[in-house]
Every structure is written in C-alpha cells, then in structure tokens.
C-alpha cells in the first residue's frame, strides 16, 4: 500500500514538473547557434543534401562512432550471456512441422527485395531521409522474416562476423584517413565532393554510411539469432 502511495506521489510530482514545462515552452521561430551554422555551411562544406546525415556522420561523427560502439558492446554482451553451452544440442528441426509452400515461396520472394530496400536506404543516406542505422534495421528485418518463416534456418556466423568486424575496421580506418588527408578525424573530404545531390557525392559519407549499415544489419541479425535459441 505504502508503495502504491509512493509511486502515486512520485508520478503526481512528475506531472507537475511536466505541466510547468509544457506551459513554459516557447516554440522556436528560427534556427540559432550551431544549427544555423550547420544549415548555412553544411552543404558547401560537406556536399551532403541531407543535413541530418551531415551532422550525424561528419560534424558529430565521433558521437556516431561511440553509438556504433555501444551497439557493438550490447550485441557482444547478449552473445556472451546467451551463448550455447558445450554439448548443447539444438532441438532438431525434423521434429517440427515445416512451413507451408506459400510461406516459403513468399519469404524467398520478399527477402531479396527487403535486403535491396535496406541497401538503397543506407546508400542514399546523404540524399534522402534514411541512413546506415535505418537501412541496417531493414536488412535485419529480412533475417527476422527468415527466422519466423523457416524454423531450421541457421545464420552463417563466420560470414556475418567477418562482415561486421571488417566494416567496423574500415569505418575507423576512414576516420584516421581523415586526419592524414583532410581536416580531422572522420572528415568526409578525403574523397572528392562530387556533384551536389548525386549518388556519388558528399565525399566519404556514402562509404561510411554503407559500412555502418552493414555493421548494424549484421549486429541486429546476430542479436535476433542469439535471442531465438531453441526456436
């Protein structure tokens, strides 16, 4: 009882704080400070049509590297916690009823399209809404579809681990190349900026976002595979 009272008091207090905040918010009328600077100089400096991408990949690239590291650590932690014990035998797939022909054909038809859509999203991250994280999540959803429709589907850990580590390695390498060839760590101007608005523009941003997309896609697929276990 005292617990319920305590949480009620806490939530009411929180409600008052939020009400105070809500009544005192003034909508912004124009860009100020660092955002105005990004909006003004972003296109000319980095050549990316999508300013959010310019901020995520280049201006605040170090944050994104940290974010990728957090995701990597979480995936590693999940793999360590849910690792299969020695001598553990996966429930045999012939004990389970296989999926129907319609489901199989539908999956085979949809998976390449979903993967292609994910690749499209992360390759066009500097031009359209989207980017490495979103594209990677879409690619992982194709793996999820495989898991759901085909109980005996096994992820090839060698290939996925290889893609994941290689994309992480090249991401950091491109960042260090930025120190050597351009203005600083993760500077995208190591490659020519190209025509504004075309797919091969914005220097290294498409390359970095492709690497992030591959890394996030394989990591999320690995998390899904670890959580599935006996399925």
């Amino acid at each position: 009882m005292i617990k319920r009272l305590f949480s009620f008091v806490l939530l009411t207090g929180l409600g008052f704080v939020f009400y105070y905040a809500l009544t005192n918010i003034t909508a912004s009328r124009e860009l100020t400070g660092v955002s105005a600077e990004y909006a003004e100089r972003g296109a000319a400096e980095l050549g990316a049509a999508n300013l959010v991408t310019a901020i995520v990949v280049t201006y605040r690239g170090l944050d994104t590297l940290g974010e990728v590291s957090v995701l990597f650590l979480a995936a590693t932690g999940i793999a360590v916690l849910l690792r299969r014990k020695k001598g553990y035998v996966q429930a045999r797939s012939e004990d389970k009823r296989g999926s129907s022909e319609i489901l199989k054909t539908g999956t085979d038809f949809l998976v390449p399209i979903i993967v292609m859509f994910g690749v499209y999203i992360f390759m066009n991250g500097h031009l359209t809404p989207g980017g490495g994280f979103q594209g990677g999540a879409v690619v992982a959803s194709a793996v999820m579809l495989q898991f759901l429709s085909n109980p005996s589907y096994r992820l090839n850990h060698t290939v996925f681990g290889f893609i994941e580590s290689m994309s992480g390695f090249f991401y950091v390498s491109i960042g260090i190349l930025g120190i050597v060839l351009a203005g600083g760590f993760l500077d995208n101007r190591i490659l020519p900026l190209g025509n504004f608005g075309s797919i091969l523009s914005a220097g290294a941003i498409p390359v970095i976002y492709t690497l992030i997309g591959l890394k996030v896609g394989t990591e999320l697929a690995g998390i899904l595979d670890n959580m599935r276990r006996d399925a």
Binding site: S35, E40, A43, L51, V52, I55, R60, F133
Partner: peptide, 19 residues
C-alpha cells in the same frame, strides 16, 4: 536553407537515442 528548414540537430540526436 537557414530560413526554410527545421532544426536538424535534435533529429540527429534522436537518431542516436533510438539506436
């Protein structure tokens, strides 16, 4: 651009927060 777009910085931060 400065007069026509919304603030891109919170969007970039939220992208990080979601992941």
């Amino acid at each position: 651009a400065v007069e026509m777009i919304v603030d891109p910085v919170p969007q970039a931060l939220v992208l990080t927060a979601i992941v």
